[in-house]
Amino acid sequence: MPHRREDASFVLLEALAEAGQPLGARQAKAALASAGISISESSASRLLRDLHGEGLVATAGAKGRVITEEGRRRVAELHGVAATSARLQQAVDVRAAKDLLDLLHARRTVEREIVREAAEHAGEKDLTDLRDLTRRHALCISKGEVPQTPGLDFHRRIIRLSRNRPLRAMADVVLGPRYNRVETLLDIIMGNHHTETKSVGEHERILDAIAAGDAATAERTMNDHLLRMSEEVERYLPADNDPLFQRLLSWMDTQESLRPA
């Protein structure tokens, strides 16, 4: 089974932390196999040596290796990261109309800061990519196709220009793969209002500000763009009409299940 070295290292450190006794290559291989990671005994031995080199395990004579205090700290740290990631993913799991509005508000908070950086750092290749996405977005709408991919990719491409790692990490969570489902919801709402072309014009104005290096205008235009979408969602899905939102989600889930694997 394919695996990442980081995953195997974490599983092995967990096994060592729980074992309470030294583990050799054979036991390490068995511990990894129980977690669904299949590697040879020699590979398990190399992995133990690598962990030893990082100070995460120590030799216990001929019996094998035991986890060090630094290793235990690493396990605790990785558990914390995993728990945080799970909470973040849960936070962007849209299940009600209010969830969608909260997520759009989070996008506005993060993206208006990121687009300032885009205006300050975008190069010609970046501008060319963004222009191509706006053209594809307009073409999709003119053909009556779902514009989800180029429209969403426009925002994701801007995020790649950020040099602020915390901001970029937050944006990657908010606009991660789970957001594709949200974008489909927005497409349905905008289509119902016949306002799909507004997003194209707004994207073009954002791009013009980025190309001009005008950070203030880029921020203001991005803010107005996402605020307009929030207002459309509020008109379409008032707080007392959550059943409509649930029907939309159910329909989308049904369509997803009907797609060929």
Rank of each mutant, 00 (worst) to 15 (best):
L47M: 09
R235H: 08
N241E: 07
A31C: 06
A138Y: 02
L227W: 05
V200P: 00
A25R: 02
N241A: 09
F154N: 02
A171R: 07
E256V: 05
M190K: 12
E117I: 09
S85Q: 14
E69V: 01
T59E: 14
E77G: 13
R46E: 13
H3C: 01
H194L: 13
L133P: 01
N223L: 12
D214H: 03
V94M: 12
R247G: 14
V11E: 01
R178C: 07
Q148D: 10
R131D: 14
L13M: 05
R46I: 12
E120M: 06
E202H: 05
F245H: 00
K125C: 14
A15G: 04
R131H: 15
V11S: 00
W251G: 11
G53I: 03
V146W: 06
E77S: 14
I158S: 01
S257W: 00
P2Y: 03
T84W: 11
L227P: 04
M190F: 12
G80S: 11
E124M: 08
S9E: 04
R116D: 05
F154G: 02
D7R: 08
Q148V: 15
H79W: 08
V173Y: 03
I188G: 08
G20S: 03
F245R: 00
L78M: 15
A44E: 02
D153E: 07
P177Q: 05
Y179H: 07
G61A: 13
E77L: 13
A119V: 03
M222R: 05
L249N: 01
R116L: 05
A86G: 11
Q89I: 12
D93H: 14
K29A: 03
V94Y: 13
L185Q: 04
L48T: 00
E256N: 05
R46H: 13
P177E: 07
P260G: 10
H193S: 15
G80M: 12
S34Q: 15
L175C: 09
T197G: 13
S250D: 11
P22T: 00
P2H: 03
G213H: 01
E41L: 05
T221E: 07
H203Y: 02
E219P: 09
E202W: 04
T59N: 13
L152S: 08
R168N: 02
N180R: 13
A15V: 04
L13T: 02
